[in-house]
Amino acid sequence: MEIVSYVFMIIGGLFYLLGGLGVLRMPDTFDRIQSGTKATTLGAFTLLIGIGIANPDWLLKVFLIIVFIALANPIGSSALAKAAYKSCELPKNLVQDDLKELFGGEDNDSN
């Protein structure tokens, strides 16, 4: 049991490292948002599951944190992506832009 929990924790640490590296190395803002969100979400899942396996009493609280992260992290990154789009940090080589019909043109204040 201990070995399984250690394996989960090491995998979680690796994904956290991958998330930090992705945020550092990706070329533009939207790629950074993508890699940061995905890698840290899975890293948090595996690391917390490893901790839960090591101490079965904590499994419920760990599960609560996992559910909260799974709900909140993608919402936060969506809000960030919308803000980044509105402050005009677009990638150089866009091939298609459907969001322009929503935000482009006049300066609307709708949420």
Binding site: G12, Y16, G19, G20, V23, T29, R32, I33, G36, T37, T40, T41, G43, A44, L47, L48, I65, I69, N73, G76, S77, L80, A83, A84, S87, E89
Partner: peptide, 16 residues
């Protein structure tokens, strides 16, 4: 926006 993305990532790591 890049700084806020980094801060978001940082926060999730700190939870771990």
């Amino acid at each position: 926006a890049d700084r806020v993305v980094a801060l978001d990532t940082f926060n999730i790591i700190v939870i771990g």
